[in-house]
Simulated assay, not measured.
Amino acid sequence: MSTDFQQARVSLGARLRELRAGTTGRDLATRLGWTQSKVSKLETGRQTATADDLAAWARATGHPEATAELQARLQGLESRSRSWRRQLAAGHRPVQDALTAEYERSTLLRAWQSSVVVGMLQTADYARCVFEAYADLHQSVRDIEDAVRARVRRQEILYRPGRVFDIVMWEAALHAGVCPPEVLAGQLDRLSGLVGMDTVRLGIVPLGARVRIPPGPGFWLYDDRLAIVEDWHAELWLDDVESVAVYERVWDRLHEAAVYGPAAHRLIARARTGL
């Protein structure tokens, strides 16, 4: 969890405590039908409130007019950390549509991925395996086919002039058995066909390459305005200058270790032969 996110959650908790003034935590919990521990966790920033929690809190403390303010604070907080539990409440398709809007707004898109092939380069069969794995992990709505169609449709942007996709992957992503061998074979064939494409610059960091920074979680940089970082429990959407600059430096260091063109093609071919 990011420090900024936690500070914002603590600040929201402090505001909730102000609204509760004159009422004990036990009494408020009774009014709301909650446990006292939930009241405590919300006030100390150890649990993230939902929009419904905040509306109920405002009413129960006699401050219904504070509902909009509290929910605006929550929206600002979640603009940075978007839990998969909440994002996937309606399935994977809405998440894909939200990302497509960011791709449409951007001209230079840089990515790092260490564990799987990046979504913009995935075949439909490979994407299906990835979505199924995450739907199982998060026990989310299984709109797999809708999500696959949305991801494949978004890949049309790869062929539009005026955009550059500068993508770096760790060689391990070429070997990860997240799908059956025949599906991975098709995925590797697709990557081979993308090497040398005028809108896509595909770099592979060899397993034995000297890197200036440990390979970490996958992320995308949308121009110089937004970084989206993937974690198991959430995505971080970072649009402040300092955070974006950190991920730009990370990307630069990993890009320095990557090979391109014929050398990248050889790594892909070696993974394909290994199947």
Rank of each mutant, 00 (worst) to 15 (best):
R212T: 03
S115G: 07
S79R: 04
L158I: 07
E69K: 05
P215F: 04
Y260A: 05
V229N: 04
H92A: 02
L174W: 01
E102I: 14
A133K: 04
V244F: 05
R151N: 11
G218A: 15
T44P: 04
D189C: 13
W112E: 03
W112P: 06
Q36T: 07
A90S: 14
V241C: 09
W237F: 12
F5T: 12
E145V: 14
R151I: 07
Y222Q: 12
A135M: 12
D136R: 02
L28R: 03
A127E: 15
V205M: 03
T30R: 12
Q187H: 13
R190Y: 00
R190C: 00
R142C: 15
E230H: 11
P215S: 01
T44V: 00
R249N: 13
G193M: 02
T67I: 00
G25K: 09
A271L: 07
R93A: 12
D166S: 14
R80V: 02
M197C: 06
A150P: 09
K38H: 10
Q47C: 05
L77T: 03
R190P: 03
A264G: 06
S79A: 07
R225F: 12
A72I: 04
A51W: 07
E248N: 05
E248T: 10
G203S: 01
T100D: 13
V183W: 06
W232R: 13
S40W: 10
E248K: 08
H265P: 05
I157L: 08
D166M: 10
I204S: 03
Y103E: 13
I213M: 14
W112A: 15
V241R: 11
P180K: 01
A133T: 11
T35N: 12
I213C: 13
R20V: 07
L28Y: 02
T107Y: 10
L121R: 04
V152A: 08
A245V: 00
V168R: 05
A89V: 08
S2K: 02
H255T: 07
S37T: 06
I213G: 12
D240H: 11
P64I: 01
D52I: 09
P181L: 01
R201T: 11
R270M: 04
L54M: 08
V211I: 06
D223W: 13
L77Q: 01
T50V: 00
Y260S: 05
Q75D: 08
L16A: 09
W84Q: 07
G119W: 11
S192N: 07
L121Q: 07
E235P: 07
C179G: 15
K41H: 08
A51I: 06
S140H: 10
Q6R: 14
P180A: 09
Q139G: 14
H255K: 11
L267E: 00
W112K: 07
E182D: 12
F131I: 15
E43K: 03
D239E: 11
L108S: 15
L16S: 05
A147H: 05
H265N: 02
A29F: 04
A60W: 03
L54K: 11
T61H: 00
R153E: 12
G196L: 00
Q71T: 03
M169P: 01
A55K: 01
D146K: 12
